[in-house]
């Protein structure tokens, strides 16, 4: 059964790019969110196997959303997806419980590899 993934990014282009990569790799994209607040709501609704989460977003950033989700679901598997240069934020996210991170611009293989590793597939 395909692993269910929630994509969170404020950039429509990035959501579409990640969706295309994961579709081709056989993942099931169960939802998309454009900010952290929507991500928390959608996580509650959809209970995905993994989340690909951008860091810098309006309304609620990815680190805050990561904390919110992990508080309610300590076993949530969240991978941060961020522009190079946000290393402090990446460290903060990993300390908050994110499992891995991917740097933009990314190669499709890196996204699939990161998710596969985190999901233990």
């Amino acid at each position: 059964m395909a692993k269910r993934v929630l994509i969170v990014d404020d950039a429509m282009f990035m959501r579409a790019a990640v969706k295309r990569i994961l579709d081709q790799a056989g993942f099931d994209i169960v939802g998309e969110a454009e900010n952290g607040q929507v991500a928390v709501i959608k996580y509650n609704e959809l209970q995905p196997d993994a989340v690909l989460m951008d860091i810098t977003m309006p309304e609620m950033d990815g680190i805050c959303a990561c904390r919110c989700i992990l508080k309610a679901y300590p076993n949530a598997k969240i991978i941060m997806c961020t522009a190079l240069g946000q290393q402090n934020m990446v460290v903060e996210a990993l300390q908050a419980g994110a499992k891995d991170y991917i740097i933009k611009p990314f190669q499709p293989d890196r996204v699939v590899e990161g998710l596969t590793k985190v999901l233990g597939a």
Partner: peptide
């Protein structure tokens, strides 16, 4: 909207790379 989002993301990635080098 999708194409403008791609252009915006280009700026995000370039600036992200730059701040890494500044770091």
């Amino acid at each position: 909207d999708m194409a403008w989002s791609a252009i915006s993301e280009l700026g995000n990635m370039i600036t992200g790379n730059a701040t890494r080098l500044l770091y």
